[in-house]
Nucleic acid binder design. Structure first.
Lengths: 203, 203
DNA sequence: GATGATACATACCGGTTGGTATGGTGGCAA
DNA sequence: TTGCCACCATACCAACCGGTATGTATCATC
């Protein structure tokens, strides 16, 4: 027998989280249907309400356990493959477009999606999303500060504000290309972004 | 008798559109409740389905008739108050934050919100939103080209790509400050953006 | 192997959703 | 005055929503 057919609470919990993540990623949290999630996970309602008290808790868990992980395993991982910040960022832009360009252009950034939908109407979501966001931003900030120490980035740039702006611009690029549903738009937009980052180098 | 109490189809139609816009702006299209819209408009379901065949058509009309207008009456109007592009853009950033900063920080950009929610799942929404977006982008592009003619912006910048990037970055700034729900974040983020636009000037 | 707890599946519930069918009313042309 | 139709209100509908109650199979433990 496959491990999935046997009783395996951790496994089914992960299946539920994964299915919920996919459904929410595409439809948004509010429009995400529990029955669709259950269908995707291959379990029934009893399993869901055994592991989670309600839909909200499931949504929160998706943010805390899936979203952050998904994020650090994609863009940030690529960025740190190079030990030069500027080079690494530009590499991550290309790599990100290459690996998950299809999802990125069609469904956008899962973090940004949830921010736009839930932040104004659910404080619990907002704080959790803010947690992920702050984590990403500090990672960016540290990377820039580190690059400054190595002389890869000008000393007069404010690392924190620059990290904020770079990430904002990146999310903006994703959003525009999502509407156009074309990777070409993302390429053109991220090209300007890469050019901006390039200007951070010492003259 | 007030004109509103008499039979006034155009008036009630506008009231419906306005109420729908507000509800969608806050909750999103999918989560927008028709009963809430009717309550906001002060009419009943009969009026709605007399003017619109269904919820989708109402949503489309909101994009076509309200969203575009709302957009051109706010940021773009401020931007063109100055006849210097760089100055005008920076002025519009400050002015936009000043006038509708509260809404901007809490509810974000109505165009960007709908793009994130609906573009992947409803082609009708996507094309209509793309129409508004393209209109905004061409307005930006023309403004930059015009500035280039006047010598306010360097000749070597690609007007189209720059317009794309600036708008993307702006939407990104709104998104981040929306999550933080603080105007201070928007200020810090838009400061970097203003600095970038400043660099478009001839050296 | 009996026992109790865990891990589900199934059936059901009230509430809300978008949508419809019907009925009434004011305005306008004949 | 009489129709007539645009305009809108009211009542009602099936479908689906998130959530619950209950039953059952499987596990660990003694």
């Amino acid at each position: 027998m496959s491990p999935a057919s046997k009783k395996n609470p951790e496994e089914t919990r992960k299946r539920l989280l994964k299915a919920a993540y996919e459904e929410i990623y595409l439809k948004g949290y509010q429009a995400a249907s529990l029955s669709a999630i259950l269908k995707g996970a291959g379990v029934t309602k009893g399993a869901l309400y055994h592991h989670f008290p309600n839909k909200q808790a499931l949504g929160y868990a998706v943010v805390e356990e899936v979203l952050q992980e998904e994020f650090s395993q994609s863009f940030l991982r690529f960025m740190f493959e190079k030990d030069d910040f500027v080079e690494g960022f530009q590499y991550a832009l290309v790599k990100g477009e290459e690996i998950e360009g299809e999802d990125l252009v069609v469904k956008g950034c899962p973090l940004n999606n949830l921010i736009h939908e839930m932040s104004p109407i659910d404080e619990g979501f907002r704080t959790r999303l803010d947690g992920v966001l702050q984590w990403v931003l500090t990672t960016f900030t540290q990377a820039i500060r580190n690059a400054q120490k190595k002389g890869q980035v000008r000393q007069d740039v404010n690392a924190e504000e620059t990290a904020l702006f770079i990430f904002a611009a990146m999310e903006g690029c994703v959003g525009l290309s999502k509407n156009a549903q074309s990777m070409e738009i993302f390429g053109r937009c991220s090209k300007s972004l890469a050019h901006y980052v390039q200007m951070l180098r010492p003259s």
